[in-house]
Computed example of a mutant assay.
Amino acid sequence: MSTTKADPQERTVSIAGSLADAIACSFTLGTDAEGYSHHYYRPADAVVVYDGRDLEHYQSLAGRSLQEWYEFVEVKRGWASEGPLAALGLRMNAERTEFSR
C-alpha cells in the first residue's frame, strides 16, 4: 500500500476541467420574474425555457450572443435570480461569439 499523497493541484485541475466541460455543454441562465427557468444548451446554440417541468419555449440563437437573450428577458420580464454559472457562461459565450465573427 502506498502512502504517497496525491498532489492537491490534480484535484483542482479536474474540478476546473469539469466546470469548463459543464459550461461548454449547458448551464442555467436563471429564473425570470414570472418563474420561468432559462437554460442555455450550447450544442444546439439555443435557450430552452421551462415552466416547471414543461417546455415553454425553445429559442435558437443562430450565432447571436447569449447576452442578447439575457438583455431581452431583462427588459420583457426581469430576472428573479441568476443561475450559479450564468456570469461565467455569459462571458465564455461572448468570447466564443466574438471569436467566430
Rank of each mutant, 00 (worst) to 15 (best):
T28E: 10
E98N: 15
G63R: 13
E71L: 09
R42G: 01
A62E: 11
A62M: 05
L90H: 11
H57K: 14
R96Q: 02
W79S: 05
Y40I: 05
T31W: 00
G89V: 10
G78C: 02
S100E: 03
D32F: 00
V49I: 02
G63Q: 09
V75P: 02
Q59W: 01
W69F: 15
L88K: 13
L85A: 02
Q59R: 03
E95D: 08
D32A: 11
A86P: 04
Y36N: 14
E34D: 02
S26L: 08
A94T: 06
E10H: 12
A94P: 03
Y70W: 11
R64G: 10
G35P: 02
G17S: 08
E34W: 00
G63D: 11
E68G: 05
S60W: 00
Y50H: 05
G78R: 06
L85S: 12
R101K: 08
Y70G: 12
L29G: 08
S37G: 01
V48M: 03
A6L: 11
T4M: 12
T12C: 11
E10D: 15
F99G: 09
H39K: 09
F72R: 08
Q9K: 10
R77C: 06
Y36I: 01
G89R: 08
G89N: 12
E71H: 11
R96L: 11
V13C: 10
L90M: 13
A22G: 09
P43L: 12
Y58I: 09
T97L: 04
Y50D: 00
K5G: 12
S14R: 06
A24N: 15
F27Y: 10
V73C: 04
H57N: 03
D45Q: 06
A20R: 01
S26R: 13
S14H: 13
E68C: 14
E82K: 06
Q67C: 03
W69Y: 07
G35W: 06
D21L: 12
L66Q: 02
R53K: 13
S37C: 10
Y70A: 03
A44D: 09
A22D: 14
R91S: 10
E74R: 15
T4K: 04
S37Y: 00
A6R: 14
D54F: 06
T12L: 10
R77F: 11
G83E: 01
A20L: 13
Y70V: 07
E68H: 14
P8H: 07
K5I: 14
I15L: 05
M1S: 13
V49L: 09
Q67M: 08
D45I: 02
L19R: 13
A22S: 14
R91W: 09
F72G: 07
A62S: 12
A46S: 04
Y41H: 10
E10I: 13
T28C: 06
E82R: 14
T28S: 11
W79C: 10
H39M: 12
D51I: 01
L90V: 02
L66S: 04
S81D: 07
A87M: 03
E82A: 02
A62C: 01
G89S: 13
